[in-house]
């Protein structure tokens, strides 16, 4: 156990301390390097910069949008896949497949082959109905990103919710039926509460991964058209404009934010460990 613990400890502590250190200094490698200790100024400037609140809004919209789509459609898909049918295994594979597509591929395929305003599949469909094609990534950039990222994460939500669904005792549903509950009532009073734990877990895990979404933005808009999330903003501060002090302060915020979510997740996982 010791080597693994030691490695992870170093891996976590060293960069973390460095980030903390940089966040307290005016450090710009391209403009003279380390310009000295500035206290909490970076933290204040990161929050008060004109790009901060738009980035927060973008992050909330993308994370919230993807969560909404993947939970709602995930529950519906899980219910559908749980029904008796022919070729269940194959349908399952079809639904899960997008999760295994690497992020850069799915972003590029969607951007070019579907959302391209002249040659994309959507443009063909729009024209077939006599409508003007939408310039997706410029006109509705956030919606487009939600679509792309949801496509990647819907399989994950579906798979977990399906697993949870299958653990629902069918006798419980039959008991509710005997007690006079109609299908809608059975869904809301029996199935949904049974799924609530799985839904919570999906929300927590996806939130952690979605907060860190990077490649999808990197290859589609590059942060333009108001698609700059917090993660992307920090990335730009650190690597593009090389304002390491400011970016590190943003990084500290990101770490705190992720830890709040992680805390809830760890509590659920920890409880599960005792059983």
């Amino acid at each position: 156990m010791a080597p693994a613990v030691f490695l992870l400890l170093v891996w976590m502590l060293v960069p973390l301390c460095m980030t903390l250190w940089f966040s307290l200094r005016d450090y710009r490698p391209l403009r003279g390097g380390d310009l000295g200790f500035v206290g909490l100024e970076n933290f204040a400037r990161f929050v008060s910069s004109s790009s901060f609140w738009p980035a927060v809004l973008t992050t909330v919209l993308i994370v919230g949008g993807v969560l909404l789509v993947s939970i709602i459609f995930g529950v519906l898909l899980a219910m559908l896949l749980d029904q008796p049918m022919w070729g269940q295994g194959i349908v399952r594979i079809l639904v899960i497949a997008p999760f295994f597509v690497m992020p850069t591929v799915s972003a590029l395929v969607w951007k070019n082959m579907f959302m391209d305003p002249t040659n994309g599949v959507f443009a063909h469909i729009w024209r077939a109905f006599g409508a003007d094609p939408v310039v997706w990534l410029t006109d509705v950039p956030i919606l487009s990103l939600i679509l792309i990222i949801s496509w990647q994460w819907l399989p994950f939500a579906t798979l977990i919710l399906l697993t949870a669904f299958q653990s629902l005792d069918s006798e419980q549903l039959e008991a509710a039926e005997m007690d006079g509950a109609n299908p809608l009532a059975r869904f809301f009073f029996i199935a949904l509460p049974h799924l609530s734990r799985a839904i919570t877990i999906v929300i927590l895990i996806q939130t952690i991964f979605l907060l860190a979404v990077f490649a999808e933005i990197f290859v589609t808009t590059g942060g333009a058209f108001g698609t700059r999330t917090l993660t992307y903003l920090i990335y730009q501060r650190v690597l593009e404009s090389q304002n390491v002090g400011l970016g590190s302060a943003g990084g500290v915020y990101a770490i705190i934010l992720a830890n709040i979510v992680a805390l809830f997740l760890m509590r659920i996982v920890g409880k599960n460990l005792d059983r």
Partner: peptide
């Protein structure tokens, strides 16, 4: 149990937060 949970929590560390130090 604590060590396991702590290990998992390191997985939650946002990469962008430690991007520059690693770089």
């Amino acid at each position: 149990k604590d060590i396991l949970l702590w290990m998992l929590s390191t997985k939650m560390l946002p990469a962008v937060g430690v991007l520059y130090p690693i770089y």
